[in-house]
Write a protein that binds this DNA or RNA. Structure first.
Lengths: 130, 130
DNA sequence: TAAAGCACTTACCTTAGGGAAACTGGTTAC
DNA sequence: GTAACCAGTTTCCCTAAGGTAAGTGCTTTA
């Protein structure tokens, strides 16, 4: 049905060829699940967006994301750090200053975020009357 | 820091202008959260991929997605139906044949899926030695 | 010297997501 | 006539995610 030719195609041709279709399917499903394992959940992308937007300090990030709590933010920042998407830097000031920044690797998520943002915008338009 | 100029930009300029930065930030976070509300979770995108790949029947979809159970598939298909992403058609055969197909609206998710697939592929390469 | 800010942590509790397994009510193939 | 397939449903259970609220140790501001 739908066939979009960008660099990677959602290989949906040959719908009725039974033999190798499952394996083909896995080639799309598996990477998507790998990606979802890292970035799914309610907060990870919002945090990445906030940090990319220039919010570096803990309280600053907290204020920039509606409804997030410090407990959740703390935990999610640790997760993002272990996934090498966020870097935590402690400056030896009085009192200590902590800054969160995105790693260069996090920039590779740009296309994902942009795709989701675009889809979210049009989806909201669609469901709340056009 | 990172600035990618596609149609929509992750507006991350002016990092230290305090006044309007939160509102700007929300303009990205909100649509992304709207999108995540619909498609996040472990199974929705895999199901959409499987159906787009030509798997129309319940058992066929079930077999094409590793580790999914019939209970979860049943529930997620209902969710996708209410979000107008999947259409369920019952054919009055003996016994009844049920077919799931994507709506045209689901095709709008292609760019999201492609972005996630690409990211997942390179992420796996990155973490499992290059 | 009290209040408020920073960067968190801890304790407690609720809910949602999801796994395992069995079961239903029908039909077809052997 | 029994095994297997289809399209699910039901029950029971468990864990992870996440909300609420308070506290900690430090410092700056009024």
């Amino acid at each position: 049905m739908q066939m979009k030719t960008e660099e990677l195609t959602i290989d949906c041709g040959r719908p009725e060829t039974e033999s190798s279709s499952h394996t083909d399917c896995h080639k799309v499903i598996m990477p998507v699940r790998d990606a979802l394992d890292v970035i799914s959940g309610k907060w990870k992308l919002p945090i990445i967006i906030a940090v990319s937007r220039g919010h570096k300090r803990f309280r600053d990030i907290e204020r920039s994301i509606p409804k997030i709590t410090s407990k959740v933010l703390s935990k999610e920042l640790k997760d993002l750090e272990t996934h090498k998407l966020v870097k935590r830097t402690v400056y030896d000031t009085q009192p200590v200053t902590v800054e969160y920044t995105l790693t260069p690797y996090a920039a590779t998520l740009d296309s994902v975020i942009i795709a989701l943002q675009k889809w979210g915008i049009q989806h909201r338009k669609k469901i709340l009357g056009k």
